[in-house]
Design a protein around this nucleic acid. Structure first.
Length: 591
RNA sequence: GCCCCCGUAGCUCAGUGGAUAGAGCAUCCCCCUCCUAAGGGGAGGGUCACACGUUCGAUUCGUGUCGGGGGCGCCA
C-alpha cells in the first residue's frame, strides 16, 4: 500500500532501452514515449519500431513484435499491444496511478518541482518600461508573462533572478523632466507653449502641483528667457496634420530641454530626479500590487557613471569591431549578422541607447548568469540581431541570450476595440485594467495566449463570473474541493494512508492521469518559455475535477471509498494551487 | 524593398513528425429531494489558407504563393 510512487515514463523508458539493446544493439534510435490521444491506444505509446524498420530493412510490425518480446517483465505494466503501422501501446496497471495522490500529498508544494535547471543561474529581464508615466496594458502583458515565466523556470530548477532595466538616462527622461517643469510654470502663471510631443498625461500636472506646493515659485523663469533661441512650437493640430511639424516639434522640444538645463542648472536635476522617483515608485507599486516583484532594478545611468559603457566599447575597439565615420563611432554589426552597422557614439559625443545596452548585456554575463532571457515587446524584434551581434563581437556566445518577444494586447469592450493613443496620453493603464477586471483575471488572461501571438483581451469576458471565464472555472474547482474537505472536517494528513485501490471509476482514473502529467507540463513550459501551457493544463485539470464532481459523490457512507476519493481531490487541490501560484493567481477556498 | 509573427470549427484560440485534429463561446437538446448549477452530459460544425518537396508517415519540418498583423532612426 505504501510503496513509493514510481515515475511511469522513466520506468518504461528503462524497459524499452533494455529491449532495444537486446534486439538491435547497434541501433542509435532515441526512445520516445508519447501519451496517445485516445484511451484505446494505452497510457504510453512508443514509435521506435517504425523508426528502426528502415535501417533494419524489416517490417515495422515485426520489429515491434521483437521489441515487445524482449521487454523485461514489469509489475506496473498490465499489457502491451502492437497497433496500426507499428505502434507499441503500453497499458499500465491502475495501481501506478493510484499511488499518485498519496505521493502528491506527501510532497505538497514540491510535487512538480524539477531539477531540470540544475541550479543554473538564469536572469529574466522584463517590463523595463521607461519610467515616464503609468504602465499601460501592453506593459501588463510583459509583466504577467515575465513573472509567470520566471516562476516556472524557478520551479523547474533554475536559479532565477528577476530584473527591471530602468531607462533613467535617456532623452525620454529629459522630456518628462521638461514636461513637468512646463506644467509647473503654468502654475506660476508663466504659460510656455506645451509641445505636442511632450508628455500630455494628467500625472505630469500632478507632479507639477506637488513641486509647486513644496517650493512655490522658486523654479520660475520668464517666458522671454525660456523661449530665447527656441524655435516655434507646433500646435497639437499642426502636429497631427502637417508632416514637417513632427521634425519641428522634436527640434523645439530639444531646445526646451537645453533651455531648462541652462536656466535651472543644478535645479534641473531636481526636476529630473523628482519625476524619475515619482514614476518609478508608481510603477513599482503598480507591479507589486499585480504580484510582480523584481530582485534588481538596474539603472541605465549607473552604466554611464561606472564607466561600463566606455569599457564595453574599448573591448569592442580592441577586437577591431568599431570604426569612425561622419564624426560618429560605429559598431560593425553587419559582420555579425545584422543588416547594417550601428552607431554607438553620436556625432555630438553622446552614447546611443544601443551602446548602453551593449554594456548592460556584457554586465549581465559578467555577473555570472549562464543564461539571460530578455522579454521585449514585439516591436523591438529588429533590435535582436544587433544585440546578439554585439555579444558575439565581445567574444560571448549569443545563444546564451534568448529574447522572448511579446506581442501586443488589444482590449475589447462590448465587442469593440478600445482605442489607445500613447501620444495624447489616452491609454488604458495597467492599474485601471486591474481595477476593472481584478488581478487574478488580469494575470490569467495575459498568459492565456502564446506570447508571440496577438492577444485580444476581452474585458467583458474577464469580468464575467461564469463557466466561460476560465479563471473562475479553475478557481471554482479549487473552492469546490476546499468546501468538500471542510464539510468532511478531517485533516489532510489523515488521507495519506487511504486505500487508493478503491479509485476505479473512469473519471477517477482520468483525473489521476491528468495529475501525473503536471511535472511534464512544467518541463515543457520551462523548456519552451511558455507559461501558457500551465494555464491550459489547469483548465483541463479543472474540467476533470468538475466532471468527477458531477459523476461521483465524495462524502459517501463507505469509509475507505470516502477517504480514497478525498485523497484524490485533496491532491487535485494541491496541484491546482501550485499551478495557480506559478501564474500569480490566487486559489480561493470560497467563492 | 527587407525582416518578424500569424493563417486550425461561425467566433476566440490550444495542440502534435504519427493512428478518428481539440477546448471555450455561439446554436440545438438534456441533467439539481444529492458535497457550491460559477457545474455536468449530448448533437451539429474542419480540404488544419494553397501548392510543391523531405519522410515509412506532414496540420506539424523546408521552399514558394496568397491573405492578416507588426517592425525597419546618430529615438529610447
Amino acid at each position: 500500500m505504501n510503496s513509493p510512487y514510481i515515475e511511469p515514463k522513466q520506468h518504461l523508458l528503462d524497459l524499452f532501452r533494455q529491449a532495444l539493446a537486446r534486439i538491435a544493439p547497434a541501433a542509435d534510435a532515441g526512445i520516445e514515449l508519447d501519451r496517445p490521444k485516445q484511451a484505446a491506444h494505452g497510457d504510453w505509446a512508443c514509435n521506435v519500431a517504425m523508426q528502426l524498420a528502415r535501417g533494419l530493412k524489416r517490417n515495422p510490425r515485426e520489429v515491434a513484435a521483437d521489441l515487445v518480446a524482449a521487454l523485461p517483465a514489469s509489475e506496473w505494466v498490465d499489457r502491451v499491444e502492437i497497433a496500426g503501422p507499428g505502434f507499441i501501446n503500453v497499458f499500465l496497471k491502475p495501481a501506478v496511478w493510484q499511488r499518485l495522490p498519496a505521493h502528491i500529498l506527501a510532497r505538497g508544494a514540491e510535487y512538480g518541482r524539477l531539477g531540470l535547471g540544475r541550479g543554473e543561474r538564469v536572469q529574466v529581464e522584463f517590463v523595463s518600461a521607461n519610467p515616464t508615466g503609468p504602465l499601460h496594458v501592453g506593459h501588463g502583458r510583459g509583466a504577467a508573462y515575465g513573472a509567470s515565466l520566471a516562476n516556472v523556470l524557478a520551479y523547474a530548477g533554475y536559479d532565477v533572478t528577476r530584473e527591471y532595466y530602468v531607462n533613467d538616462a535617456g532623452r525620454q527622461m529629459d522630456i518628462l523632466a521638461v514636461s513637468t517643469w512646463l506644467r509647473y510654470l503654468e502654475l506660476t502663471g508663466e504659460h510656455v507653449p506645451f509641445p505636442p510631443n511632450a508628455y500630455q498625461g494628467e500625472y505630469v500636472r500632478t507632479m507639477a502641483k506637488s513641486i509647486h506646493g513644496l517650493h512655490a515659485d522658486r523654479y520660475k523663469r520668464t517666458l522671454a528667457e525660456i523661449m530665447t533661441g527656441v524655435p516655434p512650437v507646433p500646435s497639437a493640430e499642426e502636429y497631427v496634420e502637417k508632416p514637417d511639424a513632427k521634425v519641428a516639434a522634436e527640434a523645439a522640444l530639444d531646445a526646451l530641454i537645453a533651455a531648462a538645463k541652462r536656466l535651472l542648472g543644478q535645479d534641473y536635476d531636481y526636476f529630473h530626479g523628482y519625476a524619475l522617483e515619482e514614476q518609478l515608485g508608481d510603477c513599482r507599486n503598480d507591479l507589486t500590487e499585480f504580484g510582480v516583484c523584481f530582485d534588481h532594478w538596474f539603472s541605465e545611468r549607473s552604466l554611464h557613471e561606472a564607466g561600463l559603457i566606455d569599457r564595453a566599447l574599448e573591448r569592442l575597439a580592441a577586437r577591431g569591431h568599431l570604426y569612425e565615420q561622419d564624426g560618429a563611432t560605429w559598431f560593425r554589426a553587419s559582420a555579425f549578422g545584422d543588416e547594417k552597422d550601428r552607431v554607438v557614439r553620436r556625432e555630438n559625443g553622446q552614447y546611443t541607447y544601443f551602446a548602453a545596452d551593449i554594456a548592460y548585456h556584457l554586465n549581465k554575463f559578467e555577473r555570472g548568469f549562464a543564461r539571460v532571457v530578455d522579454v521585449w515587446g514585439a516591436d523591438h524584434h529588429g533590435y535582436i540581431p544587433r544585440v546578439k551581434g554585439a555579444l558575439a563581437a565581445l567574444g560571448l556566445d549569443p545563444d546564451r541570450l534568448t529574447v522572448a518577444l511579446v506581442q501586443f494586447a488589444v482590449l475589447y469592450r462590448n465587442g469593440q476595440k478600445v482605442s489607445m493613443s500613447t501620444r495624447a496620453g489616452e491609454y488604458v493603464t495597467l492599474r485601471e485594467l486591474r481595477q476593472e477586471v481584478g488581478n487574478d483575471a488580469c494575470r490569467f488572461f495575459y498568459v492565456l495566449r502564446k506570447s508571440d501571438q496577438h492577444l485580444d483581451f476581452d474585458l467583458d469576458l474577464a469580468k464575467r463570473q461564469s463557466t466561460d471565464n476560465p479563471v473562475y472555472y479553475i478557481q471554482y474547482a479549487h473552492a469546490r474541493i476546499a468546501s468538500v474537505l471542510a464539510a468532511w472536517g478531517g485533516l489532510e494528513g489523515d488521507l495519506l494512508d487511504a486505500d487508493a485501490g478503491r479509485l476505479t471509476h473512469p473519471d477517477e482514473l482520468a483525473l489521476l492521469r491528468r495529475l501525473a502529467e503536471f511535472p511534464e507540463v512544467i518541463a515543457a513550459a520551462a523548456g519552451d518559455l511558455a507559461p501558457h501551457l500551465v494555464a491550459y493544463y489547469l483548465k483541463d485539470l479543472a474540467a476533470d475535477l468538475h466532471g468527477l464532481y458531477t459523476s461521483c459523490q465524495f462524502l459517501v457512507e463507505d469509509e475507505t471509498l470516502r477517504l480514497a476519493r478525498l485523497q484524490l481531490v485533496a491532491a487535485t487541490r494541491r496541484v491546482l494551487r501550485t499551478g495557480l501560484t506559478l501564474l500569480g493567481v490566487s486559489a480561493p477556498d470560497k467563492m
